[in-house]
Design a protein around this nucleic acid. Structure first.
Lengths: 133, 133
DNA sequence: CGGGATCCTCTCCGATACTG
DNA sequence: CAGTATCGGAGAGGATCCCG
């Protein structure tokens, strides 16, 4: 129909954009690594396979709930593999999959950029805060 | 004090880790680009300076509130510059600062990685979902 | 045109308690 | 040891109305 109100057109545009957003790889990537603990867990696992309690000790700030949730999420997305060894106390080991290995360089790049430029951000922030005060 | 309970030790470790987290460049970077609209606004601005309404039209999914909030945040962190031209209808232009220019390659890298590997993620997700069903 | 203020919802995340 | 379940707070984000 050519006879649409502006509101309808806007609505349609928004819907189309929403659909695009859903499938936009960049947004999906952010949905994965943007989670608070994801990168840190990935980074810890990059050093080698770890058991649940080992990851927990390495990241003292994370609660058991979030660690489990993060691990499950990463497992679902194919970044980590979960191996259960049915011994007397159950033993669970988490390790990076090949896909997990491939995201490490990206995280490394991000860390590198952050280390080089975070000072500028702090400076800009301080300048902005003092100027507006 | 050497005489601490395990709970106290854990608490102290957590506090120290929390302090580390606050200053960890990587987490701060995530706090900046991890925001839903930040990267898309940055990406839009990378193509050249834009007025408020132009950005809004380019990103139909964002509400005025979030656009303003995102822009303010990016301005505070020194990624975008805000220029107000006091004409009859006020005219506001947003442009990337040099620091803003420097984060574009990083975003480009992330987009590139996402485009190359999001398929694997989808595959892993589908496999995980069908297996567990 | 370019917002500010207010209200509401939904998700992230932590704390606590319980299970095999 | 390795979780699951539930509660509750904080903040992201959307909708709507209003202002210069």
């Amino acid at each position: 129909m050519a006879t649409m109100t502006a509101a309808q057109r806007r609505e349609q545009e928004r819907a189309a954009f929403g659909a695009f957003m859903e499938t936009c790889p960049m947004n999906q990537l952010l949905g994965i690594v943007g989670r608070q603990w994801s990168t840190m867990v990935l980074w810890e696992l990059a050093a080698g396979p770890r058991r649940y309690a080992e990851v927990s000790r390495a990241l003292p700030g994370v609660s058991a709930k979030m660690l489990t949730q993060t691990l499950r999420s990463l497992e679902r997305d194919g970044f980590v593999a979960r191996t259960v060894t049915p011994s007397v106390p159950v033993q669970v080991e988490y390790a990076l999959t090949p896909l997990g290995d491939r995201i490490i360089p990206l995280i490394a790049t991000m860390i590198d950029w952050a280390n080089h430029h975070i000072g500028d951000v702090h400076a800009a922030r301080a300048r902005h805060d003092t100027t507006s005060t």
